[in-house]
Design a protein around this nucleic acid. Structure first.
Lengths: 340, 340
DNA sequence: TTGTACGCGTTATCAC
DNA sequence: GTGATAACGCGTACAA
């Protein structure tokens, strides 16, 4: 009962015409007579003929596939970006091949090499922690040197010339910090990660800038730099107990949630006694109790933008055009962990 | 400065040998002399030759791509499944093309058609809400009739003969309900969705079976069937206020979280006054306050299992082999929303 | 109006 | 040992 896909050749044989006649007839070419066209088209429809994507890719040197390499997919932010990419790309007839680097430099390299051998027309990616730490971008350079378009988002680097999409992390942290300062907070703790992350560096800068602009001394003791993504509740707890802040700014969602839990256990009221703001407007912040004021990174928009930039490059052969960096504006979503 | 990928033909021309000699040399064929092999291999290495995936796909009629069609990716469960698929598939040298049906029947059909024209070796998918509601599976049947392997997971249907991976939803709900009964709960509310979801139907059955087995009358008033995924806080609130349950079982994570919030607002203590268990062991359950006891669906394992089943079919031409349905055991993760 | 021939990049078979 | 040829499926310039 197996109805394998039919090919041009088979149609040609059945109908006793040449392959090219079939090909032309199916494209409704003027060259072919009404009769033959109708006959061929009817037959093709009957057998549900569809051109083979692979053959077309080989011929056109275009796969209509986009390679997306991200550190992790069990992560709300990346997930929304993927959705944005998928959304836009699909409308343009592109498929999305997702590869996970798992925050590992090696996996990132392997994945890119797999895809770079003809499987995709271009890359959209966000650097793995391993890559940022190692600061080795040769795999990216190789790809761009081969003429494969590349768009970096969120976790980017200056060392690779390509299109980029980021949010203004400095501004996001600045606005969040200002919000806390305007509430009258003086001891604003910063929960952040080690410095090798470009985004954390920028968020730290925004925090410092706000303090400076408002004449608040920047106290290094109020800053906790945690090892990457490792939720060390004990350290957060000790830190917060030691410094007794009246506000917490967290560079991600999870540190913020844990921070809030720690201070709540101490009996502090949020936001009466202490305010909390976190980056990444995800589910946790939204559904925490109280819900947490967050800096939205607009992942979906970022994904759509990246896909748009990439497809433009792919389709317009704009190898000459200068590289662009789109900077998206963060938005402070005010919820119940700060005072309105 | 563009270093385009080099092809066999170009190497052949440079080295003034034939294409087939190059091909054989690079495969270390015994036919070729040491000298030529070394020369060719050195040259290929220098220019970083890698075979073109598309050409190989065309020749082998194998793409080494797996198509994954899921309703939504901003959803912890699906996300973990994708990770599991990716994980296993990558190790076997497969790439994963992710398409989102967005819970829509039409998009599901379009996506499958796109991929079915040669882009992938097989499908892994979970039915969209639209498809379950419409109960139209022709697009799946077409694919299987073409001989393209298909593995369904989680949201499956009996109407399509193919490999499947599910968790034992009946058992999961049964165990959760028993847990609540053993705590002494009598009025166990069930927050569920409309019946067209296969998983919800099964979970409802498990709930009813437990009640029956333990001699508790099944009171329809304790069951709230909410329209699909639509978080109607007001309805949940009215419902819970009206029936005053001493326990809540929710078929997903989000209803559970909202349910907990509602009863907490009423001043009830969780788990002293009321216990809560939800399906899907996601971030929300884990980080809620108190953390919510959950039925883990083992998404990652499900993804790995599905990928394994699919790749077996693809590689072993086991068109004859009977279809299998793997049933995974759910696990009750006990947390602080129930009494230990 | 229809068909032939070639090319996309690779591999496998067979001839020399 | 090496190379020519055909094949995978399609599209198209060119020939008939």
């Amino acid at each position: 009962m197996l109805k394998k896909k039919i090919t041009l050749k088979q149609i040609a044989r059945e109908l006793e015409v040449s392959i090219s006649t079939v090909s032309k007839a199916l494209k409704n070419s003027e060259e072919i007579s009404r009769d033959t066209k109708e006959k061929i088209q009817a037959f093709a429809k009957l057998y549900n003929y569809k051109p083979n994507n692979i053959a077309i890719s080989l011929k056109n040197k275009r796969t209509k596939n986009i390679g997306v390499v991200i550190p992790d997919i069990v992560h709300h932010f990346f997930t929304t970006v993927v959705r944005g990419i998928e959304n836009f790309a699909n409308k343009q007839g592109y498929n999305v091949i997702v590869c996970l680097s798992d925050e590992s430099f090696d996996k990132e390299v392997i994945n890119m090499e797999m895809l770079a051998n003809g499987s995709i027309d271009g890359f959209i990616m966000s650097l793995s922690a391993g890559t940022e730490k190692k600061s080795d971008f040769n795999h990216l350079l190789e790809v761009t040197e081969q003429g494969i378009p590349l768009v970096l988002f969120d976790r980017v680097t200056d060392e690779v010339a390509c299109d980029k999409v980021v949010i203004d992390d400095v501004l996001g942290a600045y606005q969040a910090t200002v919000k806390l300062i305007n509430e009258g907070r003086k001891r604003i703790a910063l929960l952040t990660t080690e410095d090798f992350f470009s985004v954390s560096r920028n968020r730290n800068r925004g925090y410092e800038k706000a303090l400076k602009d408002f004449g608040i001394r920047h106290d290094e003791n109020l800053v906790l730099k945690l090892p990457f993504m490792d939720i060390d509740e004990v350290r957060i707890s000790q830190f917060l107990n030691a410094i007794e802040p009246d506000a917490i700014l967290s560079v991600n969602e999870i540190f913020g949630v844990y921070g809030m839990r720690v201070v709540q256990r101490k009996g502090l009221k949020v936001p009466d006694d202490i305010s909390i703001i976190g980056f990444t407007d995800g589910l946790l912040a939204k559904h925490a109790n109280p819900s947490i004021t967050s800096v939205a990174q607009h992942g979906q928009l970022m994904g759509e933008t990246a896909a748009k930039m990439l497809i433009e490059r792919v389709e317009n052969e704009m190898e000459e055009a200068p590289f662009r960096t789109k900077i998206l504006e963060p938005t402070l979503i005010e919820r119940d962990s700060t005072i309105n």
